[in-house]
Each structure stands twice: as C-alpha cells, then as structure tokens.
Design a protein around this nucleic acid. Structure first.
Length: 587
RNA sequence: GGGGCCGUAGUUCAGCUGGUUAGAACGCCGGCCUGUCACGCCGGAGGUCACGGGUUCGAGCCCCGCCGGCCCCGCCA
C-alpha cells in the first residue's frame, strides 16, 4: 500500500479519511492496553494510536516497535478527544487510528537519541551522519540550501546566464592554494589537479562566446580547515562578457535581495555600502570589515607626535603610525584582562598595547604619565571618550597597526554583543591593490589572482611603482566574513604577459601553464569579468549556523577526513602499480 | 608547523587534596499500565576512565609521550 501523504501534513480537515503513512518511529508510549507511536518523516510527526486488542497483528506489533524502525501505517484520521490535543504539534488536533501496521525494516538502537534538545558530540554525529540528517534541524539546513541554489539558478537564468559544467580533472596551477592531485594511469608521473576554482575555464568560455556563464561549482583546496573552511566547498561562480563593475554589483545586489527576502523573509537595503580597500583598512583594520558596529580606528600620529613618549615617537620616526580605537564602556576591564589583550596583540604582531582608561576624575593608564595633559585631552576629544571608555593604541608599521587594531575591534564588538545581533551588514570592498609582496618581501604576488585587470589609470605605475597599482577587484562582505570576490579580467595577451613578467613567471613557464589562455586571447577576446560567492558560507549565514559542517551533508573533520566513510583510505597493491606510484619508504 | 580547550557507560556529563566496589540523567533490556505526547511506576544490564609509559604502598585524578575531536594562528592567489 503506497503512502497517501506525509506524516506532518494531517489536519482537522482530513478527519474521516482513511490514509496510509510511512516513516520512522520517533517515540513509543506504551500503556499496555493502549499504545501511542509518533511516526516521523521530514515533514513532521503524526501520532498513531494502536489498540492492541483490535487484531492479533496490531497486538503483535504494538509492543515490539522500537525507535527508528521504518513503518507503514494505514488507518483512519480521527479528531483527538478534547483535552488530548497537542498544541506543540502542527498535527496535534488529529491522530491516526491504526488499522494495520507494517514494520518495513527494523532498526538497531541508535547511538544517540534523535532529539533536538540532545547535544551530541560532532564525531558521533558525523560517523552516523545518516541518523543526524534525520533530525529536523539538519533537514531544515539541507532544504534551505536547496532553496538557495534553486533561487540562484532561477535568478541567473532570468538574467541571461547559462549553466555550464567545467572539468574536475584539470591541470595544476602553481599559484594559490595547494592542489589536490590525481595521478594519471595512462601517463606515468603526470597528475591531474582538482580545480581550486573554474577561473581559467570560465574565461575561456567568454572567449568562446558564451556571454554569461554560471556554475554551482565544487572547488578543492588542500589547506588547513576552519569552522568556515572545508577542503572541498561550493562556489556560485559566474562570468559575464562586455560588463563592468557596476553591472556585477547590481546583479549581486539583486540576487542577495531576492535570497534574503524569499528564503528568510529579510528585506535588504540596496545598493550595498562601498568602501575602498584603503578605507576599509584604515577605518576598520580589515579588508572584510564587520559593519554591524562602528568603533573605528583613528590615526592619532598627529596628536601624539613629539609628545615625548618614546614608544610612540620611535614608531613615528621609523615611518610607522600610531593608531587607536575606543572600546566604549570597557574601562571596567581588569588589569589582568588587559594583559591578556596585550598578549593577544603581541600574538598578532604588535610590540605591545598601550591603553588608557577614561575615568570620572581623569585617566587610569600606565602611559598617561608619559603624555602631557594637553595631548591626553586632545586624544580624548579625538575619540569623544567619556568616563568608562577604554582607549587602545598600537604604534607600529601601518599594516601591523591596522591588523592588530582590526582584531581588537572584533574583540570589542564581541564584548559589546553586537556581533550576535541579527542584522545583515553587507558591503563591497573595492580597489584592492593589484599586487603585494610575498612573505619574504622579495617577490611580487597577485593579491587576487594573476588574471585581474589593473585600474586603467594606474597602468602607468605598473613597472615603476607596482604596489601602487589598484586592481579592478572587489569583495562582497557580510558581517565581517568574505562572502565572495571577483574582478574584471585582463583580456589582452600583451597585458597578461606583462603581468606574468611582473610576477616573475618566466615566458616558458607561463606558456607551459597558461599557454592556452594566452593563445585564446589572440583570437578575439571580449572584455569580461565575474565573481564567485561562497555558497556554503552564504547558506551558513542564512541558516544561522556556527559551522559550515551544519550545512554540508557530508563534511570533513578539521584533519580533512570523512568520519562516515573513513576517507582517505588505503588502496590496493594493484592500484599503486597501475598508477605507477610508490610511497617513500621513509614514511 | 604552532597555541588553546577537550577525551570517564550507547549519549550528555559529575567524579573533591591521589585512597576501599567509578556515579547521575537520558537511552537500552524485562515487568506493570486504556489517553499519553520528554507518559508513569517497579526491576535490571551496561565501563580497556582514548592509548602507551612513568611517579607512588595506591592513579580516572599527578608527570611524559601518543592518538583523536573542536577553536584559533600560520596557510587559504
């Protein structure tokens, strides 16, 4: 007998109907002469009433059913007797009087109770993910994710985009993250790489006249994990021909507007705020500022210059900066807590952390005695500081001061409780630098990627002052997390070649790695650009989840293994041989 | 690679200053129960205290190592 409806759908209007339902036994309440069963599927639960004396079959079933057994029940939808309605359940006005109960499959006792209240350790949940996924919260997350991807496809289809798949077995690109590699059986010693993003393919699609492409694309990066980082993750990847930044911004704002309105009923204000990279760094100390709260950085170099406080003076002499931030109401932090903050600041690269508590009758600070009264007064005015406020200062190279105060700003936001608020503060960060020095300061590396188009007006500095050149690159930031990023791309062979030169990629190597792209550029390439959004992060935020693992059906642990399948696993001797592989005896 | 927190029953946890037989709740098993919905009542089973070593008369507890989990830094164009 095929089911006639889902468990969670029955209402008073269905009273009198004979129906068949199927699902899992959520709970059994056995009164001996009367047995209640909550039958569950993803839509919810219906209470089944079994009178064991009604038939030998029912008597047999009533007492043997156990949690998570899979059952099919046929019977009559009845109105519950008054006083026994359950207002907690959407189906609580009715119950299903069982005429027959079939146990389709018995279940072992589950390792944990599938109850929302129960907090089960993640390793257990992941090992028995199939049980975890039956929980309403996980069902809600997966179904939310489905609604998001459905809406994204619908929106982009409506904007003239087509979805195109690009290869998973592709070629390693030395720049960027570590690649996941797949050995070639046919070519000993050669490897495919799994894509870190479909970047090159989508540019080739633009050359190929596809005009507007998108893909819900799986990407792979063999780097260490975080709560918001998985080794394989999903990007909403898109690329447009004959476009510009404004068009891409409007497109994304339209998409976000629809997503938040239609999926979580949260209207957004568009257009989103825009900040240049410079502005984001100097005001918020981050290229992904959390704009749910103010608390901005201030450059106080002019105020403290020549004040006689050696720490500040020395930093300024060495072409550094003195920046500060106000922590409203946090003068109540203890000396010990401030010591911890100082240690944290040192951990982020600062040499120390200067602080001033503004009190009712002056200042409480280890550095106040080094600063003349008028300077203290000007500092206080700069921050509009009131008694009870705390001022924090970092004197260092500009990049260090920004980074450290940016981190402290987030700590302050956390203490003020603003990062827990449910507002959605989007912004665009624009005008990223094209290039940055790599960690040893020798080489130049692409800040975004080597295919990013420089700002036209800045091309003049490409050789003389490369670090001054801005990129036509932009990030979409939500509540301090990077939701996506993109750029307009280089579409002329000569400029692309110049970029490789600047990045120290020899023509031979460029040809070997990206020859197909350079050659494609010679056959009529439209100006193009695009963006990629982190789908997992987007869904995580929409779901209000704390970790990506809550919105991915089968995530990896922090050590990049799958607890369900135990991947990565060993392979057979024969597979080693076929792939011409041998493991280093030392390991 | 580094820092932090954690690992005790199927699950979530407690376990004092190192001291006799390691506890609770939920779950599980058995019995009773005709209006429950986290049903109730009675009874019961269930432990390699992650693992290895050390200190000690004695270790769940202290020390060292190691494995695993989570969070963070580095890393992630």
């Amino acid at each position: 007998m095929k089911r006639t409806g889902y468990c969670g759908t029955w209402r008073a209007a269905h009273v009198g109907q004979t129906v068949t339902v199927a699902g899992w036994i959520h709970r059994r309440r056995d009164h001996g002469g009367l047995v209640f069963i909550d039958l569950r599927d993803y839509t919810g639960m219906i209470q089944i009433v079994i009178h064991p004396e009604a038939s030998t079959e029912l008597e047999a079933m009533a007492h043997v059913l156990r949690s998570e057994d899979v059952c099919e029940v046929t019977g009559l939808i009845e109105k519950r007797p008054p006083e026994t309605e359950n207002k907690q359940l959407p189906t609580g006005q009715v119950e299903l009087l069982a005429a027959s109960v079939h146990r389709l499959n018995a279940a072992k006792t589950p390792p944990f109770v599938l109850d929302e209240a129960e907090t089960v350790a993640e390793p257990v949940r992941l090992k028995y993910r199939y049980l975890d996924l039956r929980r309403p919260a996980m069902q809600a997350n997966l179904r939310l994710r489905h609604r998001v991807t459905t809406l994204i496809r619908d929106y982009l289809n409506g904007q003239g985009f087509i979805e195109i798949e690009t290869p998973i077995l592709t070629k390693s690109t030395p720049e960027g993250a570590r690649d996941y590699l797949v050995p070639s059986r046919i070519y000993p010693g050669r490897f495919f790489a799994l894509p870190q993003s479909p970047q090159l393919y989508k540019q080739i699609l633009m050359v190929g006249g596809c005009d507007r492409y998108y893909q819900i694309a799986r990407c792979f990066r063999d780097e260490d994990l975080r709560a918001d980082r998985q080794p394989e993750f999903t990007q909403v990847d898109l690329e447009l021909s004959f476009t510009d930044q404004e068009e891409i911004f409007a497109l994304m704002e339209g998409l976000m507007g629809r997503l938040f309105r239609e999926v979580v009923s949260r209207p957004l204000t568009t257009p989103f705020r825009r900040l240049t990279y410079q502005e984001a760094m100097s005001r918020y100390g981050s290229d992904k500022p959390d704009l749910r709260f103010g608390v901005e950085l201030h450059d106080v170099g002019a105020i403290v210059k020549g004040s006689g406080f050696a720490v500040f003076d020395r930093a300024l002499e060495q072409r550094g900066v003195v920046n500060g931030i106000k922590a409203p109401g946090l003068a109540k932090l203890s000396r010990r807590e401030l010591d911890e903050w100082t240690q944290a600041a040192i951990g982020w690269g600062a040499k120390g952390l200067a602080w001033i508590k503004v009190t009712a009758d002056g200042y409480d600070s280890p550095i106040a005695k080094f600063l003349p009264a008028d300077r203290l007064q000007r500092l206080r005015a700069e921050f509009d500081a009131k008694p009870g406020d705390l001022l924090l200062f970092v004197a260092d190279a500009e990049a260090v001061a920004h980074a450290v105060l940016g981190q402290l700003r987030l700590k302050i936001g956390g203490l003020l409780g603003v990062t827990k608020s449910d507002q959605m503060a989007f912004c665009w960060v624009t005008d990223f630098p094209l290039l940055a020095r790599d960690e040893d300061g020798k080489r130049l590396v692409a800040m975004h990627h080597p295919f990013t188009r420089p700002v036209d007006d800045d091309l003049q500095w490409l050789d003389s002052e490369p670090l001054r050149v801005r990129a036509q690159a932009y990030d979409l930031v939500l509540n301090g997390s990077e939701l996506g990023g993109g750029s307009l791309r280089i579409y002329q062979r000569e400029l692309q070649q110049r970029m490789f030169d600047i990045l120290g990629v020899s023509p031979e190597r460029a040809g070997e790695r990206f020859g197909f792209l350079l050659e494609a550029f010679e056959y009529g390439t439209p100006p193009h650009g695009g963006i990629a959004l982190g789908l997992d992060r987007l869904v995580m935020i929409l779901a209000g989840a704390e970790s990506l693992r809550e919105v991915i059906a089968f995530p990896k642990t922090q050590r990049a293994v799958c607890p369900l399948t135990d991947a990565p696993g060993e392979i057979d001797r024969q597979q080693w041989d076929e792939l011409h592989l041998r493991i280093d005896a030392a390991t």
